[in-house]
Amino acid sequence: MTVTTIGFDADDTLWHNETVFRLTQERFASLLADHADTDHLMDRLMAAERRNLDHYGFGIKGFVLSMIETAIEVTEGRVPAGIIAQLLEEGREMLCHPVDLLPGAEDCVRSLAETHRLVLITKGDLLDQERKLALSGLGDLFDGIEIVSNKTPAIYTRAFEMHGDGAARALMVGNSMKSDVIPAIEAGAWGVFCPSEIQWALEAAPAPEAAPRYRRIETLALLPGLIASL
């Protein structure tokens, strides 16, 4: 069946995102260097992020709260107020960070917008994702925008029915096997994995190699050609 609708992930598919988090983690490690070594601190931070996802969701605000929680833990409740203030400032800087498009992203989206319905399907904080989309210059190219708390087969089913001809005639591309590829395939769409330079550990999952509708590309520049071959 011809693909008529294409879903795009946003963070680390269209623009850099995880690099901003990694820079903040480095500053976090520097601030807490007198209280914990970097590896131990990062392990504790990852554990905090994992258990807080159901409470805070995805995005910068939840990340900052997890850093503060980790700082309290590793200092046994004695973290200086100045460090807490600095972590809050780091979060504000993240929320103001410029949007840096990934190579080939703009050309890919503009090209496919001429022939297909495009839907942005992304997780994260509503205000931050809206800000990044506006700054990206790509917003007007999408026929639909879905900013969701999580990505599940039901989310993809609804999005592709609302903005297209259903999941069977849709394709989802993104850098997360766990969120962008597997649930889209389970909904009946094509799932295309486009790996990012830095992968967040909580988004990793084995590739569904046996799935007939699974594909992998190394750059978005290859997406139009892949779609034409399906």
Rank of each mutant, 00 (worst) to 15 (best):
P98V: 12
E114R: 15
W200M: 08
L127C: 08
A47R: 14
I217Q: 05
M67H: 04
I72P: 01
T152C: 03
G144N: 10
A201C: 11
R78L: 12
L141D: 05
L220F: 03
T70N: 12
K178V: 03
R213F: 10
A210L: 09
V64C: 09
F63T: 01
H55Y: 07
A10M: 03
P195E: 02
A221V: 09
R27P: 06
P153F: 03
A134C: 08
S136T: 07
M46P: 00
L101Y: 04
E209Q: 13
L171Y: 03
V119T: 06
A36I: 05
R213M: 08
M162K: 15
V173P: 04
W200R: 04
L202G: 12
V79I: 14
N150C: 13
E18Q: 13
V148G: 02
Q199Y: 01
E76Y: 07
D12S: 07
L120I: 13
S111P: 03
N52Q: 12
V173K: 01
G191C: 10
R44N: 09
A10Y: 01
L226S: 04
L53T: 11
K151E: 08
H16N: 11
L102R: 07
A170S: 11
E197D: 12
E73S: 14
G164Y: 04
E130R: 15
P224L: 06
I6Y: 03
N52F: 08
L65H: 11
L127G: 08
T13P: 02
Y56D: 14
P183R: 05
A159F: 03
M46W: 08
M67Y: 02
D11Q: 04
I198G: 04
V99K: 08
F160E: 02
F21I: 15
G144D: 09
N175C: 11
G188R: 01
A33H: 15
N175K: 11
L230C: 07
A47C: 06
L65C: 10
L133P: 00
G62Q: 05
P153K: 08
L31M: 13
A211Y: 05
D180I: 02
